[in-house]
Simulated assay, not measured.
Amino acid sequence: MSKRIDNYDPMSDPDNPQTVKFEDIQAALSRIRPYVPVTPVIPSHQSKTFTMNIIYKMESVLPSGCHKERGAANALLKIPRDKKKAGLVIASLGNHAYSMSYHAARMNIPVTAMFPDFVPIQKLQKIHALGTKVLVRGTHIADTHKLARAMAKEKGLIFINGRDHPDILAGLGTIALEILEQVPNVDAVLVPVGTGGLVGSVGTVIKRLKPNCLVYGVQSELMPVFAKALEAGEPVTIPEVNTIADCLQVTRAGVNAFHNAKSVIDKLLLVKEDWLARAILALVEQERFVVEGAGACPLAAIIGHLVPELKTKTVVCIVTGGNIDCSFLARCMDRGLAAEGRLIKFRMRVVCEGRNLEHSLELKRALDRAYAGLTTFDTEPFNDKSMCPCYVAKI
């Protein structure tokens, strides 16, 4: 039985997965509204390019920069008053911790956040600035989760799994309630997928209120954790691989997430890394949005021509977040430019014949002046490593 497993999380029990009901999501929306505003929907400038009416649901404009505020606020508001003083411990790759920390600070609830060792220091600093105790523990998020649960048990703290707790999932589903109100003619919703929590909750609402609307999940092909779960019929663990969609870099689908998502998702799409890079680039250049890899997944599926059946349809792409490290953003944009053939890096090898030694030295000196440090000579006596001092240019 699951309860015999060391470090057991009763809110994420493989033997007894919890169903997030439509009514739970409705209640969550009423609960979080004073804390989480309605996020805007913005028509894309690229709709004509892709022959579909693309509309972005901009979760990235929230104070934390991501959709996870919805689940965080709902979960925090449901903590019993007598347990709030002790506080909680969480494990995160960044967005969940920032969302929890932001709203916990507003509610005066102490938070300890644990991170695996590859999370960018920029994210850690932002979360620490909110008054959260930041700990770096573990090399994988699964390890960090175990350590956080152990701390909760040892110190009598509350542990909230940001990817699978029922209250978190109910909060995430509020996005769909807003989408149906803002875009009543929506034909399809494209949802970034990690463990499956968001797509499961969004699908629960969509299939209840507009059954004919398609719900597509989008995941990096390098970390197809939900795809593997669908194949196996249950969550399975896969090796961790770095992906541009780093917020979706999880090794196992959530117990409750998978339970709720498997029956409401119409199709799961796997996108290539180059498509993700191109999507991030397009969102910056064409839409003026700064978006993290996970938030770019829906557009990546469109760029990769994975949804031809949606031509002429109204498609909502959920932009889940915009928390991307500046240096990482620059690398993604370079990769996107390269993938589109707009950025080219190359080296040339040129063989020249000189009239004599002096003529060849004159050429070398001219190149050294014009391209200082950028030219390399392979043949002696011009190779800098073996060149006779008597030949060195006197500039």
Rank of each mutant, 00 (worst) to 15 (best):
N212T: 10
N212L: 14
N212V: 00
N212G: 01
C213N: 05
C213Y: 07
L214V: 13
Y216P: 06
Y216T: 10
G217N: 06
G217A: 10
V218A: 10
V218F: 10
Q219E: 15
Q219N: 05
Q219K: 09
Q219H: 05
Q219V: 08
S220R: 07
S220Q: 11
M223V: 13
M223F: 01
M223K: 02
M223D: 01
M223E: 03
P224F: 05
P224A: 05
P224H: 12
P224Y: 07
V225R: 04
V225T: 15
V225W: 06
F226M: 10
F226H: 07
F226T: 04
A227F: 06
A227V: 00
A227K: 09
K228L: 01
K228M: 11
K228R: 14
K228H: 09
K228T: 00
A229L: 03
A229K: 06
A229D: 04
A229Q: 02
A229R: 02
L230C: 13
L230P: 08
L230H: 12
L230Q: 13
E231T: 00
A232S: 15
A232Q: 13
A232F: 11
P235K: 12
V236M: 03
V236E: 04
T237N: 10
T237S: 14
T237F: 05
I238K: 01
I238W: 02
P239Y: 10
P239N: 05
E240R: 11
E240Q: 08
E240T: 12
E240M: 12
E240D: 11
V241G: 00
N242D: 06
N242F: 10
N242P: 00
N242W: 04
N242C: 00
T243A: 02
T243K: 02
I244R: 03
I244Q: 04
I244H: 07
I244G: 01
I244P: 00
A245K: 08
A245V: 11
D246C: 14
D246Y: 15
C247M: 13
C247N: 10
L248M: 11
L248K: 01
Q249Y: 03
Q249P: 02
V250C: 12
V250F: 13
V250I: 12
V250Y: 14
R252S: 13
R252L: 01
A253C: 12
A253K: 08
G254C: 01
G254L: 02
G254Y: 03
V255W: 08
V255I: 15
V255R: 09
N256I: 05
A257M: 05
A257T: 04
A257S: 15
F258Y: 15
H259I: 04
H259G: 07
N260R: 04
N260K: 03
A261G: 07
A261M: 07
A261T: 07
A261N: 08
A261K: 05
K262H: 08
S263R: 08
S263K: 08
S263W: 01
V264C: 14
I265A: 01
I265K: 01
K267Y: 12
L268D: 05
L268M: 14
L269V: 15
L269H: 13
L269I: 15
L269E: 14
L269M: 15
L270N: 13
L270R: 11
V271K: 03
K272F: 01
K272H: 12
K272P: 00
E273C: 01
D274N: 09
D274H: 05
D274R: 03
W275K: 09
W275Q: 12
W275L: 06
L276T: 11
L276E: 08
L276N: 02
